[in-house]
Design a binder for these strands. Sequence first.
DNA 1: CCCTACTTGTGAAAACCGTCACAATCTAGA
DNA 2: TCTAGATTGTGACGGTTTTCACAAGTAGGG
Lengths: 211, 211
Amino acid sequence: MVRNKIPASTVRRLSHYLRSLEGFAEEGGTVSSEELAARGQTTAAQVRKDLSHFGSFGKRGLGYQVDELRDRLRQILGVDRPWRVALIGAGRVGLALFEYPAFRSRGYECVAIFDNDPEKVGQQWGDLPIHSVDDFEETIRRLQVELAILAVPAASAQEMARRAVEGGVRGILNFAPIRLNIPPSVTVEDVNLVMELEALSFAITQSERGE
Amino acid sequence: MVRNKIPASTVRRLSHYLRSLEGFAEEGGTVSSEELAARGQTTAAQVRKDLSHFGSFGKRGLGYQVDELRDRLRQILGVDRPWRVALIGAGRVGLALFEYPAFRSRGYECVAIFDNDPEKVGQQWGDLPIHSVDDFEETIRRLQVELAILAVPAASAQEMARRAVEGGVRGILNFAPIRLNIPPSVTVEDVNLVMELEALSFAITQSERGE
DNA sequence: CCCTACTTGTGAAAACCGTCACAATCTAGA
DNA sequence: TCTAGATTGTGACGGTTTTCACAAGTAGGG
């Protein structure tokens, strides 16, 4: 069991295991690596290897205690506590994310919304007002925002990311199709829809050429 | 130069190189692997290796012709021609995607929208009507839909994916947080927002533990 | 024409990640 | 208590991806 250098693919799978475990819901039951692998497009050995990075939670001959492993995965992924999130950009994408149900139900609590459009500033989404970006840094620092969801046009993404870091956020979920330039102490995850579509057209084009 | 077994990470980078090249826009200019690497969080050797999978497009001592490489990447990624796309699910996510500007401007043309909510069926988005899912397979086959964007709740995602395959789509961009079970001849790309957020909280939690 | 400065393309080495195989461990039941 | 059946945890192996290093090729200047 080593605690450093966890592959990104492992983290994604852990997230998936947690989702599966939450589907079981029965108290006191157990689950084997084989069963976990079946849902999740992977192998039993992979499941065990992934978990072994963080300790040994199973019992040989029996498998894993469902509720125990679920709690352990929540700890590992850091979702055993709420996260304070700011939404930057109140456009279509921002709205879709804001109303995404899985969002709040998993402990990601939106505590502030920002937009630079004067038309939108002052409007309310649910019980949250849309703030101007004028006092952005101070506001997110005061509200103790930890994560920023960056859903603004590419042109202003770098600037707002810089200011978010200035305001003390620890992580950014970036929807703008640019590579953000920020200090390595802040984590960035990119969601690039064009890239995903291009991966699709690439794969299809390749398979057509192969025939 | 071999044409098989391209790593997924290579494809993602190609997409990124193309984005960079489109930013240059100057006709007749050249660019070195070093410059391409600088925008894009990678190394010059990686750029050259990625490109070498598909041939050799550069000139030693000079670099790559910007417009030539750009066209070549478009061919490779399959975005040198339009793609016919259907949007399945006319909720918030569907709307955000539908209005996403980079979408159409890159040749992904939405030719049909579907929803199972009778309230929504018959409405128009832009000049496109929202279809019922009753005659789904026939409609997408008739419209020669190649790609499906699946933006429906998890509960109906598998069913609609199956029907999309039935209707002849070649690729699915899946926003539902489940693993789709479909034949390998159809490509799937998953976009899982909860997973991305959990990757963020994992990374932050880890770095806090390390201190 | 030759020398210098520069950059690609690529085989080889290294690092990384997934798979395999099996000893270790556990429960149940006789 | 002992045996049979099940399943984990992990070291060793193999494949894949990245990095390295350099020969080969190009342009420009004198």
